[in-house]
Amino acid sequence: MATVESHSSDSFLKILALDTSTEYCSVALFLNGEVISHEILAGQRHSELILPMVRQALGEAGLTLTQLDGIAFGVGPGSFTGLRIACGIAQGLAFGADLPVVGICTLEALAQEGGGGRIIAALDARMSQIYHAAYEKEAHGWQLIAEPALCSPEDAPLVPNGNWTGCGSGFDKYDQALRARYGGSVKRTISGLRPHARSIAQLAAPRFAMGGGIDPADAMPCYIRNKVALKEKER
């Protein structure tokens, strides 16, 4: 999650990226520096949509899986089931086509959707909580200012004073509480933004270029919320 350096060699890469972490389903192809993508409001129909979208994207580009250099997916945080669909698809495609995988944090993908500058990315985590992280765009990538974390909007980690942009379903839902938390530091919010496969493709390209792809069996979701049940002795 450190600064990622853009590498000129990534312009020769071909990458398939997917995201099913929200109610949207998106697929993107990074082709020698260009990105083409598709997004559908999927509700809970990701399992019906994702592979047909992959087939369509590959068909439009006239590519087969084996011609790709790698597969990227949104690891989370987000819908637990959605994260596992993207992860399972990435695992299966990469294992079958013998490709490396790169997982991209959906909060960083959200920051990428926000453009540049200083971004506070917040995703609705339900149960009155958000998934939160803060990033600053530098010449070669996003510098992590606040680690991805689960918190209530009122307790969101503070950031250095300055000119911040808030985005994501967390801001869409808790705009007032988050603005109150950050005082005047959040100068603006962009509503309706969400992690998108095109951002995942862009963020993954330099990582693949640096040899950062991993074995598909090691590709895992990143849930952040890890306490999901009480052990008997904890009740």
Partner: peptide, 13 residues
């Protein structure tokens, strides 16, 4: 869904 998604993607590949 875990088994289904991995199976479908592996079959696709």
């Amino acid at each position: 869904l875990v088994g289904a998604s991995i199976s479908a993607a592996l079959g696709f590949a």
